[in-house]
Simulated assay, not measured.
Amino acid sequence: MVRISNNLVGILNIVTLLLSIPIIGGGIWLSKQANTECEQFLDKPVIALGVFILLVSIAGLIGSCCKVSWLLWVYLLVMFLLILLLFCFTVFAFVVTNKGAGEAISERGYKEYRLGDYSNWLQKRVNNHWTKIRSCLVDSKICQKLLDSGSTPVEVFYKERLGALQSGCCKPSNDCKFEYSSPTNWTQTGTSTLNANPDCSVWSNDPNVLCYNCQSCKAGLLDNIKSDWKRVAVINVIFLVFLIIVYSIGCCAFRNNREDNSWKRYP
């Protein structure tokens, strides 16, 4: 007689097996469509994740439905390691994203971002890979909207709700006190305090330079990463609960397999 736990494990693994197919397909599609280094580094992890889920699902499906105890044992071991890894990553994600936030500026619709406000671990990773990241940001044309709105009046621009990357990479810091000409064209004046913020000396009106080399640009990126990681961490918590339930059911199925095998051996 087939036990309920075996059936449940089989059904859940059919679902995850079906989910792995679009994940693998999405990774292959990304590899074909990638035009920049930003996009290229995404395809391999996505494909690897899809293949991993596919193999684990097949192991769980065969182990539960065909009552192959050793395969189900391998499945449970991998599931346990996955739960442990996911738990550690979720805790780590909450820790490294605990620091940092945009600073509200008086009479400005946008916020300003400072690199030193964010986690030292995140700062180090961004600094170590900034050449590639900068190339990605330039290719993604995050400042194109501001470049296209060249005639925007200054009072309208100051009320704009700019994203973290646009605020950090596409305009100079408010500390610089540059004179506004257009969203991406600013002029140094006698009141400009170049020494107050190192980003002031890095700013350029060249559309390919702007503030892509600024610390504020790195901070804007980190603010986006922080928001994304927090969302991922919340999803991970939900996924962890799901995995623990599946693992518990799998343990019951494994016990059932052992009992059935013992019964067959000793009638």
Results as ranks from 00 to 15, higher is better:
F178I: 08
I53A: 05
F239W: 12
P267A: 11
I23W: 08
G150L: 02
Y247A: 15
Y212L: 07
S204R: 05
I244N: 05
L222I: 14
K171A: 04
K171V: 05
I4A: 15
V246A: 14
N208V: 06
V209G: 01
L19Y: 00
C136F: 07
S248E: 05
G190S: 13
T184S: 12
L77T: 08
D228F: 14
S57C: 01
R3T: 06
M79C: 12
Y118D: 14
S20H: 09
A34Y: 01
R114I: 05
K218L: 12
L221F: 12
V96T: 02
L162M: 06
V96H: 01
G163P: 07
W229Y: 10
R108W: 13
L210D: 01
V126Q: 01
K99D: 11
S57H: 00
R161W: 10
V138K: 14
G190H: 12
C214E: 05
V237T: 05
C214R: 06
R258D: 12
R108N: 13
C252H: 02
Y110D: 15
K99C: 06
V56P: 03
T184G: 07
N127Q: 06
S216K: 13
D223A: 13
T193K: 15
I28N: 06
S69Q: 05
I244W: 03
L71K: 00
A253C: 03
L30H: 13
I53T: 00
N256A: 14
W121C: 00
L8Q: 10
C211K: 06
Q215C: 04
V237R: 01
C251R: 09
P267R: 02
I235V: 15
K159D: 06
E39H: 08
D43I: 03
S106P: 04
V202N: 08
L162W: 03
D175F: 09
A196C: 11
Q33T: 07
I238Q: 12
V237Y: 02
L77P: 00
E155S: 07
K218S: 07
Q33L: 12
T131W: 02
N205W: 11
F52T: 15
N120H: 00
S64V: 06
P183A: 10
H129T: 10
W121I: 08
I245Q: 10
C251A: 14
W121V: 04
W121E: 07
V74C: 02
C88F: 12
K44T: 09
I58E: 07
L71N: 03
W29Q: 13
G100P: 09
R255G: 01
M79H: 04
K171N: 02
Y212C: 10
F94V: 07
V209C: 04
G102V: 08
C252K: 08
T97K: 02
N185T: 15
C252V: 03
L147S: 03
E179W: 06
M79L: 15
Q144V: 01
C143V: 11
V51A: 09
V15C: 09
K218Y: 04
V46P: 02
D117F: 11
C88W: 07
S262D: 15
R134W: 05
E103L: 13
